[in-house]
C-alpha cells in the first residue's frame, strides 16, 4: 500500500528569479516614421516581469496587486503554463507549467475575466460536458460537482440558455463553473469580478472562500477591486514594473503602512475648515461632515480634542482603506 503524506505547509508554487521579456516594435509619430518602419523596424525590450521570486503554500489565498502593466497577468500566465519564462524557474505542484503535462493541467484552472471558454451559440451545459470529457471527470463526480456549483452560484435557471443570451454576470458564473468542474487544486483568477454588479461580486467572493475551505484549494487572484482582496485573500504580493515590492499578510501591510486612522465626523453645526487643520490632515470636508486622518497612536486623544472643541453629532474611528494604503505604496507616499 502506498501512503502519501501531505503537509498543509507544503509549497505548491515556487517561483525563482523569473523574468519575462517581450520584444515590442516601436514606431515614431507620423507617416514618415511609418515609411521608415517598412524597411527598418526598431524593437524595444519590455520587462513585463523582472526577477520575481516567491513561494505559495497549499491552501493559501494570495492577491497579486499592482497598477496596469505591472506584470500580474503575465505572472499568472507563466504559473499556468501559457507563457514560457525568459529566465528563471517556475514549479507548480512539482511540475514545470510550460511543459503542459496533462497531469498538471488537470489540477489547475485559470479564470480570466475577459477571456471565455464557453461555446457562444450553445447553452453552458454543453461546454460543461466538453470539459467533463477533456478532464476525464467520472460521471458521478461530474454530476455532484455540477449540482453543487450550480446551487452555490444560483444559475439553475440559465443552464439551457445559449451563452450569447446571458448577461455578463451570468456568463462569469458559468465560466467559473466550467473552470471548477475538475476541482482544481490551484485556481488562478485574473480579474474575476470585472464588470459584475455588487451583488454578484459579493456572491463570487463568498463562493471562492467556500471553495477554498472545502477543497483546500490554493487561490491566486488579481483584481482592481480591493473588496475582492480584503474578503478573499490573506496574503498580498505587490508588483510594480515587473518587480515584487511587497509580499506579506494583508493585516501586516495595514499595520505596517497604515500609520494613520480616519476620524469620520458629523458636526451639529457648520464648521470652518481652518479650525480642523490642527487636528490632522483633511481627507474630505463639506462643512457639516469631515474625514480627518490622524496619527494612529494619537487617534483617541484627537477624537477627544474634537469632541471638546466642536458640537458633534457623531464620530467614527475607521481604519485606513486598503485601497488607500496600496495607492500610497505605489505612489511612494508612505
Amino acid at each position: 500500500m502506498r501512503v502519501t503524506i501531505t503537509h498543509m505547509a507544503d509549497e505548491v508554487i515556487k517561483v525563482k528569479n523569473v523574468k519575462k521579456y517581450f520584444s515590442v516594435a516601436q514606431k515614431g509619430e507620423g507617416f514618415g516614421a511609418s515609411l521608415i518602419s517598412l524597411v527598418y523596424k526598431k524593437y524595444k525590450e519590455v520587462k513585463a516581469v523582472d526577477d520575481i521570486s516567491f513561494e505559495i503554500k497549499s491552501g493559501e489565498m494570495v492577491a497579486f496587486l499592482g497598477p496596469n502593466g505591472a506584470g500580474k497577468t503575465t505572472t499568472l500566465k507563466m504559473l499556468s503554463g501559457i507563457l514560457y519564462p525568459s529566465e528563471g524557474t517556475v514549479s507548480v505542484l512539482g511540475y514545470t507549467p510550460q511543459n503542459r503535462q496533462p497531469e498538471f493541467q488537470k489540477q489547475i484552472a485559470l479564470v480570466m475575466g475577459q477571456k471565455n471558454q464557453l461555446w457562444w451559440d450553445l447553452p453552458p451545459t454543453d461546454t460543461f460536458l466538453l470539459n467533463k470529457d477533456i478532464y476525464s471527470i467520472p460521471t458521478s463526480q461530474y454530476k455532484s460537482t455540477l449540482e453543487e456549483l450550480v446551487d452555490l452560484l444560483e444559475v439553475e435557471n440559465i443552464l439551457t440558455t445559449p451563452v450569447r443570451k446571458l448577461s455578463l454576470g451570468q456568463r462569469m458564473k458559468c465560466e467559473l463553473i466550467a473552470s471548477l468542474l475538475h476541482l482544481p487544486k490551484i485556481l488562478f483568477l485574473d480579474e474575476p469580478t470585472i464588470g459584475l454588479d455588487l451583488v454578484i461580486q459579493k456572491k463570487m467572493r463568498s463562493f471562492l472562500k467556500k471553495y477554498n475551505k472545502k477543497n483546500d484549494a490554493t487561490i491566486i487572484l488579481t483584481s482592481h477591486y480591493m473588496d475582492d482582496v480584503k474578503e478573499v485573500c490573506d496574503r498580498v504580493i505587490l508588483i510594480d514594473h515587473g518587480h515584487k515590492i511587497y509580499d506579506d499578510q494583508i493585516d501586516k501591510l495595514i499595520t505596517e503602512y497604515a500609520n494613520e486612522k480616519y476620524l469620520k465626523i458629523e458636526f451639529a453645526n457648520e464648521v470652518s475648515k481652518e479650525n480642523l487643520k490642527g487636528i490632522g490632515s483633511i481627507i474630505e470636508f463639506d462643512g457639516l461632515q469631515a474625514t480627518v486622518a490622524v496619527p494612529r497612536k494619537d487617534h483617541a486623544k484627537k477624537a477627544a480634542e474634537l469632541l471638546a472643541k466642536f458640537e458633534i453629532d457623531n464620530i467614527d474611528i475607521a481604519e485606513v482603506e486598503l485601497e488607500d494604503i496600496i495607492l500610497k505604496y505605489f505612489t511612494h507616499q508612505t
Binding site: K77, G81, A109, L110, K115, Q117, I134
Partner: peptide, 12 residues
C-alpha cells in the same frame, strides 16, 4: 488575439 489561451491550459 490570445483566444487560444483558455484552451492551452487544458489537456487538449
Amino acid at each position: 488575439d490570445g483566444r487560444i489561451n483558455m484552451t492551452l491550459l487544458k489537456p487538449y
